[in-house]
């Protein structure tokens, strides 16, 4: 039963109000107040020019995009088969897989990070095993560098991809796959010509949501990364916390927010199309 417009708005009202109060108002206050400090529009523009095209910001933006892209790719490659298994699983197996994916979210970031240290550290479990079986002679550096950031972010973002893909895969009409098989398609062809295209909107949505989330990542790269693994959100934090240079932080925030909103607009369109298909 489709909700009337009014009912929908009424149901959304508390959430919207909360968002406006605890999110929009403070952000507006922060950005507005900080930029006002700079003075006129042309002065703001001058500062923006200086900030955004200075070496650090450019580097961080490059870093951010590169890391986000790499993580998104990895998450997709790992998440796709995982979601497929999940969409096929029933009963206990389904619950088990789902639990494995979601459970880590019930532990705090600190606990998770210490778990990573135990696992990935120089004297961590993985290095000990690899050294033990003689596969390596020197411990691998799996943490406090780009590898660590990628591992950590991939892990944290995986559920978003898996759950998005799961929804798309679950919605695929199994009879279409059977029909394709009946028309002479091999399992590989069924997958490539029917299953993949039918889940493509899910892939695009999953990629966008993962990428959007990855762009704003702060905690994981800060904890798992090395000296050079600075992402844009970390730079913003530095400007706020270390330099007390809030106008600069505000400008970077606007850039990040704009990019995010543009990507989100794509995401919204694609999920709508996915809905319409069904």
């Amino acid at each position: 039963m489709p909700l009337s417009r009014l009912t929908a708005w009424l149901l959304l009202a508390p959430t919207l109000l909360l968002l406006v109060l605890v999110f929009l108002v403070p952000i507006g206050w922060f950005i507005g107040g900080s930029l006002a400090e700079l003075g006129t529009l042309s002065e703001i523009w001058e500062e923006a020019d200086a900030v955004l095209f200075s070496g650090a910001v450019g580097g961080a933006i490059l870093n951010t995009n590169w890391i986000a892209a790499l993580v998104t790719l990895l998450v997709l490659l790992i998440g796709y088969p995982m979601s497929y298994a999940l969409s096929r699983a029933k009963g206990l197996v389904f619950t088990a897989i789902l639990l494995c994916i979601v459970l880590p979210y019930f532990t705090s970031t600190i606990v998770r990070t210490y778990a990573w240290m135990v696992l990935l550290g120089r004297n961590g479990l993985i290095n000990q095993i690899l050294l033990g079986i003689g596969l390596i002679n020197e411990p691998l550096q799996l943490m406090y560098n780009r590898t660590g950031v990628i591992i950590g972010m991939t892990y944290v973002l995986l559920p978003y991809m898996v759950l998005t893909l799961y929804a798309a895969m679950k919605a695929v009409d199994q009879r279409l796959l059977q029909a394709a098989e009946g028309m002479g398609a091999s399992p590989a062809t069924v997958f490539l010509k029917v299953f993949m295209p039918l889940t493509l909107h899910g892939v695009i949505a999953g990629v966008l949501i993962t990428f959007i989330l990855a762009l704003g990542f702060f905690v994981t790269p800060a904890l798992m990364g090395g000296p050079g693994d600075i992402m844009i959100a970390m730079l913003i934090e530095r400007e706020v916390e270390l330099t007390y240079n809030w106008p600069t932080a505000a400008l970077m925030t606007i850039v990040l927010l704009t990019v995010t909103l543009i990507l989100y607009a794509f995401y919204a369109r694609i999920s709508d199309q996915g809905e319409a298909r069904r």
Partner: peptide, 15 residues
């Protein structure tokens, strides 16, 4: 030198 240091540091660290 707070601004100068942090800018220089961020740039250096990102190299």
């Amino acid at each position: 030198n707070r601004d100068r240091v942090n800018r220089a540091w961020s740039r250096w660290v990102l190299r």
